[in-house]
């Protein structure tokens, strides 16, 4: 039988309840269960997590950096989406 490589998985770990899962790296595994087990051993050896997500890398769709201009630059000048755009008298302390 020809050797097939174990597929690559991306690992996301929630470090404690209340925080989001964060991408922390990748690893190889044959299936989701093994990916979870490996992720536990590889990425939470020092108590780093309370929950793990794994997703096979090939299932992730990423935006193309060549399109960064049209995707992200139009948001740059929409300053009215930020609170500092609005002028308030100094007397108003908290708003």
């Amino acid at each position: 039988m020809g050797t097939k490589n174990w597929p690559l998985w991306e690992v996301f770990v929630r470090s404690k309840n209340g925080l989001e899962h964060r991408h922390c790296g990748s690893l190889h595994a044959t299936d989701a269960e093994m990916a979870l087990e490996n992720a536990r051993d590889v990425y939470t050896r020092r108590n780093e997590g309370v929950s793990i997500w794994v997703v096979e890398s090939k299932n992730i769709t990423a935006s193309n950096p060549d399109n960064n201009g049209e995707l992200f630059e139009p948001a740059q000048d929409k300053v009215y989406r930020h609170p500092t755009f609005y002028d308030l008298p100094d007397e108003v302390k908290h708003m």
Partner: peptide
């Protein structure tokens, strides 16, 4: 190698 192949084959069967 036989271990890695076996794990892969098992995952495919599953």
């Amino acid at each position: 190698e036989w271990v890695r192949d076996a794990a892969m084959a098992y995952a495919e069967k599953q």
